[in-house]
């Protein structure tokens, strides 16, 4: 009995050890992968047409979902915000509520989550399928480094697209808030825009929002290209990698958002 118990404990310890070693190994590989991608960055910008193509696929083709989501989020925000502000007789503050919520938090976070689902998953699936169909191996055998030709342009395409998408999300959200607040509910347009203009600062609000979206862009793009490159070359492997990209990117965005918010808005009235 004690022999069986010892064997069971040993197996359990082996499993934990294996999991820890596997995780550490993957983290190390991901770090080396990031360095390799950064190393190939000048090459990606020299072949600018490749990066521009990826900006089109990751950015331009994500516009519809980003703009529509931004519009509806702004509309709901305006509706809910008005109901709350009205209780305190502060309904004219609706503009500042909508703008700050979008520019500081919802714009970067929501567009990051949408970007991970639309573009991040597509990047992982594309690179994973290229690996499965031996296109990456063929490139290597033609003395063309896939990191330079395939991975780096997609990484930078995502990093560049993300802040622009977040800015457009916020802009359409504010427009949605205006339509509901001013056009439907009937808040004074001057108060809506005036409060917003007076209450939103460029540095602590807009710039920090842009920084957040830039960081989210790096995180999502890195996870997407890494998972695709590291995917098992099978249908199931690509499917799992795509799922991991969406799940890990979403969690990473929310965790990074909390950390950055702590540092960025520590002295502001929101905390």
């Amino acid at each position: 009995m004690s022999v069986e118990l010892t064997a069971g404990v040993a197996q359990w310890l082996r499993r934990i050890g294996g999991a820890v070693t596997g995780a550490a190994s993957k983290l190390g590989f991901a770090s080396r992968f990031l360095l390799a991608v950064l190393w190939h960055t000048p090459g990606a910008f020299r072949r600018m047409h490749l990066t521009l193509r990826e900006i089109y696929f990751s950015g331009v083709l994500s516009l519809v979902i980003i703009l529509m989501s931004g519009l509806f989020v702004g509309m709901v925000l305006s509706l809910q915000g008005y109901e709350t502000l009205k209780r305190y007789g502060a309904d004219e503050q609706l503009g500042i509520l909508v703008a700050l919520s979008l520019v500081r938090e919802l714009g970067p976070v929501m567009s990051g989550l949408l970007f991970a689902s639309r573009a991040g998953s597509a990047i992982t699936a594309e690179i994973g399928l290229m690996k499965t169909t031996e296109q990456l191996a063929a490139m290597e055998m033609m003395a063309v480094d896939p990191l330079a030709r395939v991975v780096a342009p997609r990484f930078w395409g995502g990093v560049i697209s993300m802040p622009l998408l977040a800015a457009l999300f916020s802009a359409f959200g504010i427009f949605g808030g205006y339509v509901v607040g001013v056009r439907l509910i009937g808040i004074d347009a001057g108060a809506f825009w005036g409060q917003m203009k007076a209450g939103v600062d460029v540095w602590p609000d807009v710039t920090n929002g842009i920084i957040k979206s830039f960081v989210f862009g790096i995180a999502v793009s890195l996870i997407a290209v890494f998972e695709g490159y590291d995917a098992k070359p099978t249908a199931e492997g690509v499917s799992s990698a795509t799922t991991r990209t969406v799940v890990m990117s979403s969690l990473m965005i929310l965790a990074l958002d909390f950390v950055m918010t702590v540092f960025m808005f520590r002295g502001a009235s929101v905390i």
Binding site: E134, Q135, A138, E140, M141, M142, A143
Partner: peptide, 13 residues
């Protein structure tokens, strides 16, 4: 490798 050519099993186009 620039002096190699390789035909993969399913073409890898």
């Amino acid at each position: 490798r620039r002096k190699f050519g390789m035909l993969f099993q399913f073409g890898a186009l």
